[in-house]
Design a protein around this nucleic acid. Structure first.
Length: 470
RNA sequence: GCUCCCAUCGUCUAGCGGUCUAGGACGUGGCCCUCUCAAGGCCAAGACACGGGUUCGAUUCCCGUUGGGAGCGCCA
């Protein structure tokens, strides 16, 4: 294979969509796999809907995911001269023509055609009018051949194509002079030497039209590969109303980028029975032949599982860095005890699916002793009068404990337990509620070891104030 | 409506004519472990949409039906 050049070309009209992110990922992986070149191009020919904020959000999303590009971002709007030049060439060669049909008139004719149950294509009213540049407000249309097929061998879907007449003479330049996406994309792909166009399957129907454009430009088309769309949990197209669609949403929900990448790459692509893929492995193993043709659903269960997997794998310092903003958001300010979070984070990562959950579960570590809040149900269940002597005995034992570590704590608990003649559960649960505020937490010895003696005793004292006497 | 595309457990998928009593993962249920919650281990339930062909033999090939998706813009 020639050295491939691929591109991802989002339109900056919103946030980075997970479908777009996956397309970007596939382009990135394909170019990496074949030692190619990956270009980021911003398709901003629709000036009304394109914003710089959206462009920044898209770029930020890609960076967060760890998808890197070798060239760009190139703004399509900056390439307008090339688009104009291409149109001039097609016009003078008679391969395109000016059209003065108004938008309103077109809309009427279109509606009438569809009402008859037919498929609308331009009716050719201006096709042979031979309109010159001075014809007033006009669009430019590509003159399609009356017969023949426009076929290609799709990298994913295999042999594909359409009859030229099915397409009709479509507009390539708007009446305000701006090129349409299709024209701009083809001209730019040509100018940038793109060899493999990997894009969403929503473009499958446009490809024949694009092929006609390449032909009108006397150019050799690139290879095309269309990846199936990602659909929502209901099997329908992802909807901004019903489904979480932006990469940003997943980031804010506490997912790690490596988890999101792993999840996305597996929707529509597989490598045997493998489930876990690092970016490097994706870059090494990706192939278009293994991309599926059926649309895939964005069901989040596996994403949660993957996220926990990566939460468990991250080096501690990096995990802490990722967790920090979530802790601040959870607490509404900086933690009183960041050092406890640091030593306790390993206890949290095995019990959390997301960073949001992790921040919540780690709250008892981060707050000051008097800032601890108690779960009502846990209090009602474990702080009955019977717990009082147990806690008092334990408090005394812990106050005099020689070694404040897991082994020492366990010995202390065992001693108290035996003396009081109760099972460990009877003793541990009231303590757990006292020090964590909740009936569920990491192991009690590990928890106390991280908290330290002073906090533990202070929290037990605070609990004792609330536990009823027999 | 018309054009194009797709179809294996709830979901993501393995399977590229016999190796399939259809494999894995997530999720779900149960058991074990256990100071709670997790994590971990073990077990279980769970699919080739339907109907015709082709073939000695179809999950795998072909055609219909059904279901789903995309397109039919002076949006991308």
């Amino acid at each position: 294979m020639e050295t491939p050049r691929t591109r991802f070309s989002p339109s900056p009209t919103g946030f980075l969509h997970i479908g777009g992110a996956r397309t970007a990922l596939y382009n990135w992986a394909f170019s990496r796999r074949h030692d190619g070149h990956f270009v980021l191009r911003i398709e901003d020919t629709d000036r009304e809907r394109s914003t710089r904020e959206a462009e920044a959000a898209v770029i930020e999303g890609l960076q967060w995911l760890g998808i890197t590009w070798d060239e760009g971002p190139v703004r399509q709007s900056a390439l307008a001269d090339r688009h104009r030049e291409a149109v001039e060439r097609m016009l003078s060669a008679g391969r395109a023509y000016r059209c003065v049909c108004s938008a309103e008139s077109l809309e009427e004719r279109r509606a009438a055609t569809i009402a008859r149950g037919e498929k609308w294509t331009y009716d050719g009213r201006c096709r042979d009018a031979d309109l010159g540049a001075g014809c007033g407000p006009h669009t430019v249309r590509l003159r399609m051949a009356a017969e023949g097929r426009l076929d290609w061998d799709d990298g994913v879907f295999g042999p594909s194509g359409q009859e030229a007449v099915e397409i009709g003479d479509r507009i390539i330049v708007r009446s305000d002079g701006a090129p349409l996406y299709h024209l701009a994309a083809v001209v730019d792909d040509l100018a940038m030497g793109i060899t493999h166009v990997i894009r969403g399957a929503d473009h499958l129907n446009n490809t024949s039209f694009h092929l006609a454009l390449y032909r009108a430009l006397d150019a050799e088309p690139p290879h095309f590969a269309h990846v199936p769309l990602i659909v929502g949990a209901d099997g329908k197209k992802l909807s901004k109303r019903r489904d979480p669609v932006s990469v940003q949403h997943y980031r804010d929900a506490g997912f790690l980028p490596e988890a999101l990448v792993n999840w996305l790459v597996r929707i529509g692509w597989s490598h045997g029975d493998d489930e876990i893929f690092s970016r490097d492995q994706i870059a090494e193993l990706f192939s278009l032949e293994a991309v599926h043709r059926a649309p895939g659903r964005a069901e989040p269960e596996k994403l949660f599982w993957l996220n926990q997997h990566y939460l468990k794998e991250r080096p501690r310092a990096e995990l802490l860095a990722a967790l920090a903003p979530f802790v601040e958001a959870d607490l509404g300010g900086p933690p009183a005890h960041p050092e406890r979070l640091e030593s306790g984070v390993d206890l949290l990562r095995e019990r959390s699916k997301t960073l949001v959950e992790m921040a919540e579960r780690g709250r008892f570590l981060a707050v000051a002793d008097d800032g601890l809040e108690y779960d009502e149900k846990a209090v009602a269940k474990h702080w009955k009068a019977a717990a009082r002597p147990l806690l008092e005995a334990l408090r005394a034992e812990l106050a005099g404990l020689a070694a404040w570590d897991e082994a020492g704590l366990e010995a202390g608990f065992e001693a108290v337990r035996e003396r009081q003649g109760v099972g460990l559960g009877k003793l541990a649960q009231p303590v757990r509620v006292a020090v964590t505020g909740s009936g569920a937490s990491p192991g009690i010895y590990e928890t106390l070891a991280v908290l330290g003696r002073d906090s533990t005793l202070a929290r037990i004292d605070r609990a004792l104030e609330q536990i009823p006497r027999a």
